[in-house]
Simulated assay, not measured.
Amino acid sequence: MFPVFDGHNDILLRLYNAPEKREAIWLTGEGKGHLDLPRMKKGGFAGGFFAIYIPSPHDDDGIDYQQLMENPPFLLPLPALIPASEALPVAWAMANHFLWMERASAGAFKLVRSVAEIRANMAQGVISGILHMEGAEAIGPDLDALHAFHAMGLRSLGPVWSRPTVFGHGVPFAFPSTPDTGAGLTEAGKRLVRECNALKIMVDLSHINEKGFDDVAAISDAPLVATHSNAHAVTQSSRNLTDRQLAVIAESGGMVGLNYATSFLRRDGKQSADMDWTDVLAHLDHLLAKLGEDHVGLGSDFDGATIPQGIGDVTGQPALQQAMLDHGYGEALVKKISSENWLRLLERTWGA
């Protein structure tokens, strides 16, 4: 229906975990996950933020995280800080996969550094990719690696995923819980935000705790953005934004991308994909009421979360758009939410 520009996906993690299958994962599709090049074309995926994410070393800790999230209340344990020396090789490998995706696509997918490039690609039917870092573990407190990744194309960064970094603290996965779960930014984190502002790297507030959010808001001279977060007033997950936080984002001219993760959408906090559109639309209604129709977009979390069965994968985005239309959103508003609000936010953040 309408082109979609998306706030967050984790396909680079899939490529990192199975590099020997990357041609099948990206170019032809292997029948798994939420994204691949053919399905992105079919689903009207015009572009988005592609996350470098350092996986947590807890795969063999004996805890059934999926089962815990199916039975709220829950508070999931998080691993300790991952040092830059361990994170950097992983981040480098994911960045290389991102560059390979561009080369292998034969012109169908391009890394972008400006909104002008995105608009040109949309006019030509080319998918745009923004290199994003979800958690800055790979960057040391000297920030040298930030400049290296910026030269490679990095234009968006979240100081933390949910575990701590040398820059600050994220929220644990908890329900019910507020995002007020710990200390704010470190001095290194404050330097990171200032340097991102100087380099025109968008700072992503998804995953950061409330005190860290407030520190970024006090320091940053750019619009405040949460690429893949929802409304705490609807679902009381630690990962969702309170009305006070939404007011701060609105005052900055910023934006929130609706996260499709079921545990952040469902009012009962469960992870089950067995849900209708009611809670999805309730989050959109609330975000629109608090932020305004020019400041809400989509932030799927494809390949990084369980998503509603009505969406399924990237080819289900037209179904979400139809649900918005059926709910009473006009075509102009659905187009804004689908892509235009992201492009205008990036113009305010990056410049032309």
Results as ranks from 00 to 15, higher is better:
D10I: 02
N17P: 02
W26D: 12
L27V: 06
K32D: 12
L35W: 00
D36N: 15
R39W: 08
F45E: 11
F49N: 07
F50V: 06
Y53H: 12
P57S: 06
Y65D: 06
Y65G: 03
Q66K: 14
E70F: 11
L81Q: 13
A91D: 12
M94P: 07
W100I: 04
M101C: 08
E102G: 05
L111E: 14
S114F: 04
A120S: 14
I127K: 03
I130D: 07
A145D: 12
H147W: 04
L154T: 08
G170W: 00
V171G: 03
A174D: 15
A174M: 05
T178H: 02
D180C: 01
K190Q: 11
L192R: 07
R194Q: 14
E195W: 01
C196M: 08
C196T: 10
K200E: 10
I201S: 09
L205C: 07
L205G: 04
H207E: 11
F213Q: 07
D215G: 02
D221Q: 15
V225D: 05
T227S: 15
Q236Y: 03
V248Y: 06
A250C: 04
V256P: 05
A261E: 13
A261D: 09
F264Q: 13
D268G: 05
G269C: 10
A273I: 03
W277A: 02
W277K: 00
D279Y: 03
L287M: 12
L288F: 07
A289T: 11
L291Y: 04
L291R: 02
G292T: 05
V296N: 11
V296T: 11
S300C: 10
G304E: 13
G304C: 07
G304K: 08
G312Y: 02
T315C: 04
G316V: 08
Q317T: 11
L320W: 10
G330I: 03
V334M: 01
S338E: 13
S339H: 15
E340A: 07
L346Q: 04
W350K: 01
